[in-house]
Amino acid sequence: MKKIILSATAFIMLFSCQNEETESTAPSTNSIVQRGCASHEVLEAQLKADPTLALRMNEIEAFTQKAMLTNRLVNGKVEIPVVVNVLYRTAAQNISLAQIQSQIDVLNQDFNATNSDYNSVPALFSGVKANVGITFVLQSVVRKSTNTTSWSTNNAMKKSAKGIAPTTPTTVLNMWSCNMGGGILGYAQFPGGAPSTDGIVIDDNAFGNIGTASAPFDLGRTATHEVGHWMNLRHIWGDANCGSDLVSDTPTHNTANYGAPAYPHYSTCTGTPVEMTMNYMDYTDDAGMYMFSNGQKSRMAVIFVSGGARAGFGI
């Protein structure tokens, strides 16, 4: 397992020196075969548009590291109100309340270690698998008919002109269900971004585990992955070859894993560790991801304590 030592300068570079990627606005289909999360690309665009964001995120990271060292953690006393914003052009995209509730149920299972596959975690990682202990409650559903065929990652779905503006984002998790396009299943805004664009976006074909949810992303794990970002988790490979996810108890991954990798899957990084491919912050299919680590739990908990980036949700 790895140590996390990060200076302020290195942290800013971590979020400002990746290669830019262009967004796709091609219509999506039900045939996406590899997970596509645009959270990192959205972050890169936000960092470019707002140079002060890197400084705010650096302050959040410094607070996170200090809080974890001093055990200033919430310990499972956080309940997250959720508003789901549904943007639809077709009747199928106007997903049902039952499908929406299925997603809330999946989040509660995955963040409280009651998911049926939790006990499938290999013995190698059983000592670090975590019950995060955060719950989610559906507060309301907002629906809007639209002529937009597919949405990109420019946050247009979060603006009232064409989409739905977020509801009190400092105290409510806003989720948007819409037809993303471009092979993207979803994306999230990391802590530190503007409240007007805060929340997570999920393609309607990956929302919940019934209705329009389409295999292999039909178990609701796209939202689990994106909520992880919203709670300050990085991709497990650190969005770089053998990069850092800023968590000490996850193995170093050389890159993203797709599909359903056979266990054990060895990293090509120093020490060739067995990769934690079943972690929610990898890119495997929904059926292939079913755990957070204790280090990730601590990192998520910190943002809800007094002075944390999402303290409005905490105790």
Rank of each mutant, 00 (worst) to 15 (best):
V132M: 08
F136V: 03
I104Q: 05
K144V: 01
A123E: 12
L87R: 05
R89P: 00
V128Q: 12
I134T: 02
R143A: 02
V106L: 05
V142Y: 11
L107E: 11
Q103H: 13
A130C: 06
S116A: 14
S102I: 03
L107Y: 03
S96T: 09
V121H: 04
Y88I: 07
V106D: 12
L138S: 06
A91H: 04
T90C: 01
T114R: 07
V82M: 04
N94V: 00
N108R: 05
N85I: 01
N112I: 01
V86D: 01
L97C: 12
Q103L: 07
I95T: 08
L124M: 11
D110Y: 01
V83G: 00
D117Y: 04
G133T: 02
V86E: 02
Q101C: 01
F136I: 01
V137R: 13
N94W: 02
T135V: 06
S96H: 00
A91K: 14
V84F: 13
R89Y: 07
R143K: 08
T90E: 01
L138V: 06
V121C: 04
N131L: 07
D117C: 08
A91E: 15
V82D: 05
V137G: 10
Q101K: 15
I100C: 04
I104V: 06
N112H: 11
G133R: 05
F125Y: 14
R143S: 07
P122Q: 11
D110S: 15
F111M: 10
N119C: 07
V132R: 07
N115H: 10
G133M: 06
Q103C: 03
V132F: 02
V106Q: 14
A130G: 00
I134G: 02
L107N: 03
S120G: 09
N112S: 11
N108F: 08
T114V: 03
V132W: 03
Q103V: 02
I104P: 02
D110N: 15
V132L: 09
V106N: 09
Y88E: 15
V121S: 02
I104N: 03
V84T: 05
V82Q: 04
V121D: 03
Y88C: 11
Q93N: 09
V82P: 03
V128K: 12
S96R: 10
D105P: 05
N119Y: 10
S116M: 12
Q93C: 08
V137E: 10
N85R: 11
V106M: 12
Q139L: 10
L124K: 14
Q109D: 12
S120D: 13
V84I: 08
A91L: 14
V128L: 12
K144C: 03
Y118F: 13
L97I: 13
L97N: 15
V132K: 07
V121F: 00
L87I: 02
Q93Y: 10
K129R: 14
N112C: 07
N112V: 04
A91Y: 00
Q139D: 11
A123R: 10
S140T: 08
S96I: 00
L124Q: 13
L97R: 13
Q109P: 08
F136R: 09
S96K: 06
L97W: 06
V132G: 09
N119S: 11
D117A: 13
V142R: 08
S102H: 07
A98C: 06
V106R: 15
F125G: 11
A98Q: 15
I104D: 04
V128C: 08
